[in-house]
Nucleic acid binder design. Structure first.
Lengths: 196, 196
DNA sequence: CCAAAAACATACTAACTAGTATGTTTTTGG
DNA sequence: CCAAAAACATACTAGTTAGTATGTTTTTGG
């Protein structure tokens, strides 16, 4: 029961990487089994269908992995708005799995699949809601501590911030350069300052 | 020479709609010729390849069409920041071609194709640069008129705004609802206010 | 009007797709 | 140890894909 789990996990991880760079629909099962050295029989033993694998990637890999990426969260004594800035700066400039040319895995997946696969859409929404919650909590604590302006709507502000993040990830693809990340981060800092 | 041009244009328009909803790679030529009632011979007479058609869609349809969508621009006497707000409000809530479930055509196209087709990437970058320029000009004029804070960096602010737009289009897909558009617009208004 | 070119039509192909049928090997628990 | 189940392997299938080969029809300019 141990080696089988490893096989399954390897499929998920390799498939995730392929899908991140190439997209879900254009990543074929043949390609996945070629890079994993797993045979088709093994693949379909672990997953009834490609979509079942896709869903497992969202729920078993991304859901846990992304929270980890975002949650280098609250160093104590740090201003909550600085925390948020740091999270996105690290995500954009300090993450060496994510590549500027390939954008954000969750963003890509949403864009491609949400309109056509309700299961994917719901799973992705759950995943993203986790992150929104995490960020919203930071702002709410900031409000309580008087470090964030009382007029700020945390959910609304977080939606703006996350939208900006997804958007700038797409701009990175468009220009194939992280210069736009830097420009975005400067303006994010201004925006966050306006929340004080 | 007239009917042929109409055929070509119809292919571009129908293909654009299909690609907008389904994505470029998952829209097949067979599907395009089925919905246009054009035969495969005619299709490949007008376009050497699928990619040539894709490029024509960007350069001949979207490049002109999008500027039109954005450029219900400057009513005179309107505050430039109000103009920008109105542009995005109209785009998000008042455009009856764009559907919440399918996002932004240019954003989708960029996400899917920019990493894998340099011609597409460059064409899309040209298209987007037009819009950024249009918005940047509005802010620059606002600065000159003293209606926008002199500390504002127009390019930087516009990048933030457009990123937010692309991002919230993706959130629309994620939740399959335009509620997030409304929330985003409220926060956009706050942000724009901070530029005064 | 009429030849040449432009525009369109039909039938095919080779490569790829997700998925299945039918095995063999490996692991597991009594 | 050994049968049964779990895990994996191989060969196939039916459908789809972009693109081509080879036509026929329509338009155009002299």
């Amino acid at each position: 029961m141990k080696k089988a789990a490893a096989t399954r996990l390897m499929i998920l991880e390799k498939a995730f990487e392929l899908i991140y760079t190439k997209g879900y629909q254009t990543t074929s099962i043949d390609e996945i089994i070629a890079t994993t050295q797993v045979t088709k029989g093994a693949f379909f033993y672990h997953f009834k269908s490609k979509d079942e694998m896709g869903l497992a990637i969202i729920n078993e890999l991304m859901k846990t992995g992304m929270v980890h990426d975002y949650l280098q969260a609250g160093k104590e004594n740090e201003h909550p708005l600085d925390t948020i800035y740091r999270i996105f700066k690290t995500l954009l400039l300090g993450n060496n799995f994510l590549k500027v040319a390939y954008g954000c895995p969750a963003g890509n997946f949403t864009q491609e699949m949400a309109p056509w696969n309700e299961s994917f859409r719901v799973a992705l929404a759950g995943l993203v809601d986790q992150l929104l919650q995490l960020l919203t909590d930071i702002l709410k604590k900031g409000k309580k501590a008087g470090l964030v302006n009382s007029k700020v709507h945390p959910e609304q502000a977080v939606l703006m911030i996350m939208s900006g993040y997804w958007g700038i990830r797409n701009f990175g693809k468009l220009y194939n350069s992280n210069d736009c990340y830097k420009s975005y981060l400067r303006e994010l800092k201004n925006y966050l300052h306006s929340l004080r």
